[in-house]
Design a protein around this nucleic acid. Structure first.
Lengths: 181, 181
DNA sequence: GGCGGCATGTAAGTTGTTACATGATTAA
DNA sequence: TTAATCATGTAACAACTTACATGCCGCC
């Protein structure tokens, strides 16, 4: 079973969901570090049923199905959570384009960095909003702590990228005596 | 043509290389944000020849081939560099495991974070070494500036992850009155 | 009645990894 | 001579995206 299946089971651990709802939840909650397509979700859901890790039942509408996590599913999920996470492999095109930037006009590098800056600024705003929203909800059991850690990761990461983008843009602008695009 | 091809052409812009050398260079220079396998490199090299973007010539050894960038290849690379980079899609398993950490023993989360911390500490050390090495080489033309920016990205990024790992671990250790594993 | 959101699914294509198979060259 | 490194390539597999195809449901 692929990590996709475990992510879906994680969401199902909070209650029954349709495939459609799973996709929407991933798009919202995990947007800055995970994504799935329908073409991936529905087949994996079928695999999970075959494995006996989730059950499929009738939904509120005709032709909708709600999935629930089984006890074996819970156990499988728990065991997966204990395994060391596979090391993430990145493919940061922007860094390739910075590395070889001398082979193209400086203006295009600046454009890329401005876009990058904007994207991460927006992301950071979103994450801060999430954070404040979560913190405004009373949490006597400390259930929110892990979720807040995930948000914290996003904030630190996006802030670091933001700082870097600004620093790099400054450097580029300072040296424009010798290179006007 | 996929980004893999352009990355390879970028390396070839500095001089002729074998497929084997391209792989080694990517593993060293781009290790913290890019990777390629031989099973990818050799077929793409053939595609690039078919496109007329690189030429294949005899290498120093029997049964080795060196590839050189053609003028059309240079042009194609330069045009690609001007295009907006595709937004990176991450799959950070560690954050999924933090998010659902309440479904497994706290000790396993701590283990994951310790490993994470170690990996990024090592990475950071490597990047600082690269940086100092590069900075020790005189660079009157400023050719190193873009490369130093890439290294700077890595340093900021790894430092942010390091800080987050430490903060999260501290939080976990502070609350171990209620949860001893 | 029609639009937007809910809902499921498949087929084709893309991209990439892993494993395998082979062989040359060099330095200990 | 033998181990490490240099070197190329393919086949099988895995994972994922995109595009397509279809239909329901509620609201305006």
């Amino acid at each position: 079973m692929t990590s996709t299946g475990y992510v879906m089971m994680g969401l199902l651990s909070e209650g029954p969901l349709t495939g459609y709802m799973i996709k929407k939840l991933i798009d919202v909650r995990f947007r800055f570090f995970w994504s799935e397509s329908y073409g991936q979700i529905y087949p994996v859901l079928q695999q999970l049923v075959k494995q006996g890790w989730v059950n499929s039942g009738p939904g509120e509408r005709k032709s909708s199905k709600v999935y629930t996590l089984t006890e074996e599913g819970q156990k499988a999920l728990s065991e997966w959570l204990m395994l060391a996470p596979v090391k993430a492999t990145y493919r940061l095109e922007i860094l390739i384009k910075v590395y070889f930037a001398h082979l193209a006009p400086t203006s295009s590098l600046k454009d890329h960095l401005h876009t990058h800056l904007q994207e991460h600024t927006q992301e950071l705003g979103l994450l801060n909003a999430f954070k404040h929203e979560l913190e405004s909800i009373p949490d006597p059991q400390g259930d929110h702590r892990n979720i807040l850690s995930v948000i914290d990761y996003g904030i630190r990461y996006n802030q670091a990228i933001l700082d870097w983008s600004n620093a790099t843009l400054s450097r580029l602008e300072d040296s424009n005596e010798s290179n006007v695009a």
